[in-house]
């Protein structure tokens, strides 16, 4: 059991949790940040993706204690003063979901990708996103949404 501070979406959270407890479990079960989803528990589906210092990270694969000191962003932290990010806007505009359970992880992975690469090719998107599963099979729409987000960002709308 350890006590530590997590810096999430611009706020500090004091957490007490066993050393081995995952960041995902702490987010969901101790801090009620349920936008980040559990899908497989082994880093295979991407539903639990968050940003740690800007990098897409599977929160089920990292102990929460190891995330102390990092700048963590979850899906709840993207919207600022009622304004969505280009990636969120693009997912809405393309209708890039069905049940929506994978959407948080998809948006976080796509945000990291577009941060590193402003105009990825289809092939680069597929490579970067291949660890995220949409069981409803909306991949073509997610691909279109990521390209739309790239052009939204390039157009200087944000």
């Amino acid at each position: 059991m350890s006590k530590f501070l997590l810096h999430i979406n611009g706020q500090d959270h004091s957490v007490q949790a066993p050393d081995e407890e995952s960041l995902l479990s702490v987010l969901r079960n101790r801090l009620a940040l349920t936008g980040t989803k559990y899908g497989c528990g082994e880093g295979q589906c991407g539903a639990c993706t968050v940003l740690m210092d800007g990098a897409a990270t599977r929160s089920c694969q990292i102990p929460a204690a190891a995330a102390a000191g990092a700048k963590i962003t979850t899906i709840e932290g993207l919207e600022r003063q009622g304004r969505l990010t280009p990636v969120q806007d693009a997912f809405l505009e393309e209708g890039a979901y069905q049940c929506g359970y994978c959407t948080s992880g998809m948006i976080m992975s796509a945000s990291a990708l577009l941060h590193d690469n402003h105009s990825p090719t289809d092939e680069q998107i597929v490579t970067a996103m291949n660890g995220n599963v949409c069981r409803c099979g909306t991949y073509p729409r997610i691909l279109a949404a990521i390209k739309r987000a790239a052009s939204l960002s390039a157009g200087g709308t944000r």
């Binding site: 969901r28 009620a32 940040l33 349920t34 936008g35 980040t36 989803k37 559990y38 979850t74 899906i75 709840e76 993207l78 919207e79 969505l84 969120q88 997912f91 809405l92 209708g95 979901y97 929506g100 359970y101 959407t103 948080s104 948006i107």
Partner: peptide, 21 residues
């Protein structure tokens, strides 16, 4: 017509059954 409550799904606000507290 776009999916009802789409905004809640892209912001993580929608509460799925496993999200209920």
């Amino acid at each position: 017509v776009p999916k009802a409550n789409g905004h809640d799904f892209v912001t993580g606000k929608h509460q799925f059954p496993s999200d209920i507290v």
